[in-house]
Simulated assay, not measured.
Amino acid sequence: MKSVLALIPVTLLAAACASRPPAADPQAQEQANAQWQSLRADYTNCAREQADAGLPGRGSPQDLAGAALKACQSRLDAMRGAFRDYLDAQMVSSHGHDSARQAADRLARDAEAKTRAYLVRYVERERYNAGLR
């Protein structure tokens, strides 16, 4: 009986190890990480370019920032998808995949909010420097 009880922890450990994902290729992980970060930079650059195009207009900085973000929505969606794929590759359970989706959505919301705040200040400064106030 004692030998059977001694095998239980070993069996549980073996099952836990078997449920772990195979070791992911570190180079592939680095590439996936670099990809979503590159897409994030692309989104920010797109928004700034859109804001630059609207600088001479009469809209408020908040309106201009909103229009710029809307014009770059597809790039934000691409970044969200790449980040989710990056996290999904590291998850095993359905709970882990749900967490990856939630984290990707949170990242996208944060990126949009930070870019919006940056653009409002950017537009105000650029208009001031250009004498457009």
Rank of each mutant, 00 (worst) to 15 (best):
A16H: 07
Y86G: 02
P56W: 08
L107Q: 05
Q102P: 00
Y128A: 15
L7R: 13
A82I: 06
A24V: 12
D52L: 01
E126S: 10
Q31V: 12
A130Q: 11
E112V: 00
D98C: 02
E124M: 06
C17A: 13
R106C: 00
A82R: 03
R125E: 12
Q31G: 05
A41Y: 07
A117S: 14
L39N: 00
A100Y: 02
V4E: 10
A103Y: 02
P56R: 12
L5F: 13
D110E: 11
Q29Y: 05
G59A: 14
R116V: 03
P56G: 12
R80M: 05
K70L: 11
V120D: 09
G57Q: 01
V120M: 09
A28D: 08
A65C: 05
F83W: 10
L107V: 04
Q27F: 15
A68L: 00
S93F: 10
A68V: 02
D88N: 07
A53R: 07
P9T: 09
D52Q: 04
V10R: 06
D98Y: 07
G59S: 12
P61W: 03
L39P: 03
D77M: 04
H95K: 12
N129H: 13
P9Y: 04
A14R: 01
G54E: 13
N33W: 13
G66K: 03
D105H: 08
R20Q: 14
G54N: 07
A15I: 13
D42Q: 10
S3M: 12
D42H: 03
A117M: 08
V120P: 04
A103H: 06
A51M: 02
R80T: 04
R127A: 06
A111T: 10
A16M: 08
A28H: 03
S19G: 10
D85P: 02
A68E: 01
G59C: 06
Q35N: 15
S19A: 13
P22F: 02
M1P: 09
R40S: 09
A65I: 02
L76N: 00
Q73K: 11
G131N: 11
K70D: 15
D77R: 08
Q62I: 06
G57S: 06
M79Y: 01
A67F: 04
L76Q: 00
N33Q: 13
D25G: 01
A47P: 02
L55R: 02
Q27E: 15
D110H: 08
M1L: 14
R48H: 02
A47R: 02
P56S: 10
P26Y: 08
V92Q: 13
A113F: 06
L13A: 15
E124K: 03
C46K: 00
L64R: 04
A23V: 05
A104I: 00
V123I: 11
P61I: 04
Y86W: 11
R109S: 15
D63I: 10
V10T: 13
P56K: 10
Q73C: 04
P61E: 04
K70Y: 08
A103L: 05
R40H: 09
S99Y: 09
A130T: 08
L76S: 03
A104F: 03
A130K: 12
A100W: 04
A67D: 10
Q102S: 13
R40L: 10
I8Q: 03
A41C: 05
